[in-house]
Design a protein around this nucleic acid. Sequence first.
DNA 1: CAATTAAATGAAATCGGTTTCATTGAATAT
DNA 2: ATATTCAATGAAACCGATTTCATTTAATTG
Lengths: 345, 345
Amino acid sequence: MKKENITIYDIAKEANVSPATVSRVLTGNAKVRPQTMRKIVDVIEKYNFRPNSLARSLLHKQSKTIGFILPDINHPFFSTLVQKSEAYALELGYTTFLCNTMNNSENESKYLQSLVEKQVDGIIYLGGRINDTDTDQEYAEEMKKVMERTPVVFVNGQMSGVDAHIVRTDEESGVEMLVELLINLNHKKIGFLGGLEGISSTDVKKNTFVNVMETKGLGVNKGWVLDAGFSIESGEEVAAQFLSLKERPTAVICANDLVAIGVIKVLTKFGLKVPDDVSVVGFDDIYLAKHFPPGITTISQNYDQLGQTAINVLVDLINEKEAKKETVIPTSLVLRDSCKLFSEK
Amino acid sequence: MKKENITIYDIAKEANVSPATVSRVLTGNAKVRPQTMRKIVDVIEKYNFRPNSLARSLLHKQSKTIGFILPDINHPFFSTLVQKSEAYALELGYTTFLCNTMNNSENESKYLQSLVEKQVDGIIYLGGRINDTDTDQEYAEEMKKVMERTPVVFVNGQMSGVDAHIVRTDEESGVEMLVELLINLNHKKIGFLGGLEGISSTDVKKNTFVNVMETKGLGVNKGWVLDAGFSIESGEEVAAQFLSLKERPTAVICANDLVAIGVIKVLTKFGLKVPDDVSVVGFDDIYLAKHFPPGITTISQNYDQLGQTAINVLVDLINEKEAKKETVIPTSLVLRDSCKLFSEK
DNA sequence: CAATTAAATGAAATCGGTTTCATTGAATAT
DNA sequence: ATATTCAATGAAACCGATTTCATTTAATTG
């Protein structure tokens, strides 16, 4: 048997008052006479009593808890974002449930149910599928049902058919800046590496890439747009494909910095110098981008602003205030040493 | 006003049964006639009803929830460990609260209270101070009181005066392997860089370093043992100190891989080649260690085993089973290219 | 000092489930 | 067909806090 918990009744009894009065001391919602207060506080401290927040939440119908659903906490982008968001949520009095889905729809579904049952006040969803596979559609339906009762904010992603509040990085202008940078550096043959079809942020980036390239009068060679994942390993794989191309681009935009790192690693290994032989740029400005040689030119995500805005929107929704349906967080270009002016050999 | 929740009473009414029967369907704890079952399940699905786990937890006195207290989720060591642990905890039916303290005692205390109030069934504490500052001692006292009612497992750390269950990496033998490796590579002048005095894992490593060096008949130059933090930036700082030494070691052991990366980066920048001029080894085998050039020789932490064991011990404690007081997880040496045979120039 | 007003405290209902115990209904045995 | 047994269901208590409303106590005024 579990050791008996100390409850507000025990405290009340020992202090010769009613539970109501103890509660008033705990919450500060009403005055108690100083001498009564002292008595009660003494007993509370004697037993190191902490009120059971489950009971409180049950009554108040709010748990002061936010759930995070994300693909992989091990990815620097997510860990940084979560860290910032969590710290800010704490300031607002919310603690956070972490749900690592490992990109597994089944896990997502399991976690989503769990968060609902745990009565989280709101959910931050990092990621976003726009696939139309059966499981994904099912999951989208589930999400919609959840959203009828629990506010959800999507960060840097969306889900097809789900009309949610979104806070997102301006990936379009980010990619645009990268393309323009490379064009200004005299590159004409540019590729896009990494990411995964059906993940919304990848799709946004790729579409923007294609659009800008066409606007600038440079076509896009289909063979230069290569899917992969989001990790260093994905970058390594896609770099291998890159190497086997008959005609290669002179510059590549990677779906994120980890992919860029993988690409640089493999290119270097096979004797291609970055940036001398190939220019490589990334996205996210994870903390590694500035440390990994040669220093990766990338687009900086404003983690603080992204996280805080997401939490703010969510908390507004929780409190049934109006909230902007879509907030776009600006980015900035971070110039480092992984790309340079192209010149024919 | 919040939209009214659907409760088991609503379901019961609509299905023309008592709440007790609905509960039996939900939990599976007792039989109900198939036709009754069907009726109830239909109503549950119609309203997409999920039972409020707060109410259940309140009654059962267990929340099926585990709290993680850790310094910084943004550090690959922690994010990897958390990811593994969390996945395993989920298998056992537990969800996890994440608490990022950012090494701030005040935050730790706040989070600790919050976890207790939220009635977590147990706590995994990653980190560990053995300082004797006032706030740290206060915090240790707090921890002890929490441990009277809530099981806590310390992972790779301890707290002075706190007698807790510990699951830890065999940092001693890890450091020993590193020292022996370097000695076998003919290094005699070896330094230890990074970490922070008073953090238990640092202290363990440093003490082992000093002991082994003395056992091997090589003294330790105090000036070659330099404190710093645990990040790449810490490595950069401490590398700057290293560079300003009149006499430098020919090899350094870093408190972890991130520090090693920072060190390598700065040494390289100032014209010292790793491993040609200085051998550098790390600890943890974070995913970056193999990717960061030249590839860091390091000690591999067994993240899966560490995480699973910690969860297992914690769950045993929760269920009031006996559990080993201290479990030591073996390490292994991972040879890469950041160190080599020393030879006089 | 009594009467009135204001402040402090207590009693009881409530949140939404689960579970025990009692009861009803169905199934089996006589 | 009736008595007996067993399965299915319902009523009510419970978990531990908060809050409203009623009541007691203290403070103020005449």
